[in-house]
């Protein structure tokens, strides 16, 4: 194995990690602040990709499309919160699961009616097309580097918001002592609305970042949702820091597992056994990771409260 290959796999893992972080951040905030399980978070990721794809095609500029698309994602977040989610916040977890599952079905089908089942075109923005040489023998796609930078920037921004602002203080307090926060006279409903819409926008941003890489189609949120939940749970519910660390770990484990597990198995158990077990094993690695983490730390890596 060459250094170039290893470095590029490392970058790939980190880049998958930051996408997962963008999706998981909103999920864990909503979870933490309002104790609310939102299965429809994957739908917001999908809507983000659709909005930016459509608006980019309409305006002819990726920058304008992205800006308008993020505003659109924010607005849709507000609308969904007011229409459905706010009526579910103080309900049983299972009712939230059921209600938000219903929302997935409705939104996915509406998108299918509007745009059809076929995947939408979402070309890489021309400025960021192609690849650059990072090391001798290592060409890396520019867009994946852009994703890395954007993801890390959002992480820093979130860290600042949560740790250095009044809103962040409320969010942190809300996730551990919700009664105290409402006793302080803070309108917890409005706090939730803001956190929720912001989370929806982050998911939308993740969708827009992933758009040039993956097939933009109505069910694209389903798969990312489950992985995002894995990230949130490993990190500990409500913890932004946990979500960040765990997103990077999951991204790395998944990517490096796919890259090297089959070869490693070949050395360990022989070629034919490895051919049979390798792909199955690398598919289940992240679930294995979650099971191991939870059996050692039942509230995740950074989770204080068992929700």
């Amino acid at each position: 194995m060459t250094t170039a290959l290893f470095v590029s796999q490392l970058l790939n893992g980190l880049q998958l990690g930051v996408i997962l972080f963008l999706v998981a951040a909103g999920l864990t905030l909503v979870f933490g602040v309002m104790d609310f399980i939102n299965l429809a978070h994957g739908v917001q990721y999908m809507l983000g990709a659709y909005l930016v794809a459509v608006l980019t095609a309409w305006t002819g500029s990726f920058a304008a499309g992205l800006l308008l698309g993020l505003v659109g994602a924010l607005v849709l977040g507000f609308v969904l919160e007011v229409l459905v989610f706010r009526h579910l916040t103080r309900r049983d977890h299972l009712e939230q699961v059921l209600g938000t599952f219903g929302v997935i079905l409705i939104v996915t089908e509406l998108v299918r009616i509007l745009f059809g089942s076929a995947p939408l075109a979402f070309p890489t923005p021309a400025v960021f097309a192609g690849s650059v040489t990072l090391l001798p023998g290592l060409n890396y796609p520019v867009w994946r580097l852009v994703i890395l930078v954007v993801g890390l920037a959002v992480a820093v921004l979130l860290w600042y918001l949560v740790n250095r602002t009044r809103l962040g203080m409320l969010v942190r307090a809300g996730s551990t002592h919700p009664e105290t926060v409402s006793a302080l006279g803070v309108d917890i409903d409005r706090l939730f609305l803001v956190v929720f819409a912001f989370g929806a926008m982050l998911a939308g941003l993740a969708g827009a970042m992933a758009g040039p890489l993956v097939s933009v189609e109505p069910t694209m949120g389903d798969r990312i949702l489950i992985v995002a939940f894995v990230v949130v749970v490993i990190g500990g519910i409500g913890s932004i820091k946990g979500a960040f660390v765990s997103a990077l770990v999951v991204g790395l484990v998944d990517t490096l597992g796919r890259a090297f597990a089959p070869d490693l198995l070949k050395v360990l158990v022989g070629k034919s056994a490895a051919a049979a077990a390798g792909p199955a094993l690398s598919s289940m690695l992240i679930y294995l990771l979650m099971a191991v983490v939870l059996s050692v730390r039942p509230s995740g890596l950074f989770g204080g409260r068992s929700a």
Binding site: F31, I37, H93, I226, F229, V230, V233, I237, Y287, L288, M290, A291, L294, S295, P298, S299, G300, G303, S306, A307
Partner: peptide, 15 residues
């Protein structure tokens, strides 16, 4: 069963 609540939901999914 070492976990509770949402963690239990997710660990059963993992298995």
């Amino acid at each position: 069963l070492r976990t509770r609540g949402v963690y239990f939901i997710m660990i059963t999914l993992a298995f």
